[in-house]
């Protein structure tokens, strides 16, 4: 009975058009397309900027007094290198940054461990750290000069300060962000205190720490320039200040370019570190 009604219903419907079949792909395959390697594609942008810069200088849109051309910058670099001034300036700046970075990273991690692992530590110290973080570091400059004079110590101190805060903040967030379920699992399987910290909590905070380190590496160069421009007889910042007195835009641009390159190299090192330390995230075998 039911069959008859269904058949009658079907008969009463208009005849349907046959189904047309198509290939399922929305994207089209593009045969014979030339693939440019990723690295080459990434280099194209900066190269274009430099070429345009050179073109604008050649067309006298900028005078040498306003902005030196890339070729003039390279010349200045060669000349300073031959004099030995560039190497010594870079070396002294690098030394200051390295010392400040080492001190700041240790301080940031230790503070983060104390406040991240213990509520008492957090309640006692975190408000102080947050307040200190809100103080613009350059505002401290006059005080720092009174306290530490104008030698190497104040420069290293300022860099260390600039590094401590981002490392502290991100490591602290990393520690507090460790999955409680993993901590519990560690506890049920017999990890106590230091074992738990070493095997579960600190490795769990590592991604946060590395983010902090990348911020710190940018911040420390910003601070060292200013510290060297104000009170120094050496370093890249000092070189820029000297160039200002003689209107040498080529040397100024050279020093800025060196900062940029050093920044990229430092970031690259941390990214390599991430690749090696965070293998477990992608499960890729052997870094």
């Amino acid at each position: 009975m039911a069959d008859i009604t269904i058949n009658a219903l079907k008969a009463s419907l208009p005849v349907r058009a046959p189904v047309t079949l198509v290939r399922p792909s929305v994207a089209r395959r593009r045969p014979g397309r030339i693939r440019i390697p990723r690295l080459a594609r990434r280099v194209i942008g900066p190269v274009l900027v430099i070429v345009m810069w050179q073109a604008l200088c050649d067309a006298h849109v900028f005078t040498a007094f306003e902005l030196a051309s890339p070729l003039a910058v390279i010349d200045a670099g060669r000349q300073l290198w031959a004099e030995g001034a560039l190497q010594s300036a870079m070396l002294i700046s690098l030394e200051r940054v390295a010392a400040g970075l080492a001190i700041g990273v240790v301080a940031g991690v230790v503070l983060a461990a104390v406040t991240g692992l213990f509520w008492l530590g957090e309640d006692l110290m975190d408000p102080v750290i947050q307040a200190a973080r809100a103080v613009p570091i350059l505002g401290l400059l006059p005080l720092v000069i009174i306290w530490l004079g104008v030698g190497e110590t104040p420069k290293v101190f300022l860099v260390a300060l600039a590094v401590t805060f981002p490392v502290y903040l991100n490591t602290h967030a990393g520690i507090r962000g460790v999955d409680m379920k993993l901590v519990e699992a560690g506890q049920t399987f017999g990890l106590r205190h230091w074992g738990l910290v070493r095997k579960v909590i600190l490795p769990g905070a590592l991604p946060g720490f590395l983010v902090g380190l990348r911020f710190a590496l940018v911040g420390c160069w910003a601070i060292i320039v200013v510290a060297e421009e104000i009170n120094a007889q050496s370093g890249l910042g000092y070189l820029i200040m000297q160039a200002q007195t003689t209107n040498r835009t080529d040397i100024m641009c050279l020093c800025l370019a060196i900062y940029a390159i050093l920044g990229i190299v430092a970031d690259g090192i941390v990214r390599l570190l991430e690749r090696y330390l965070l293998v477990w995230r992608r499960g890729f075998k052997g870094a």
């Binding site: 993993l182 699992a185 074992g195 769990g204 477990w280």
Partner: peptide
């Protein structure tokens, strides 16, 4: 609840002296 930054074997022996 395996520890993601340890390989399978140390996860099995986790916390055992």
């Amino acid at each position: 609840r395996l520890i993601p930054w340890q390989r399978v074997l140390p996860n099995v022996s986790l916390g055992l002296p």
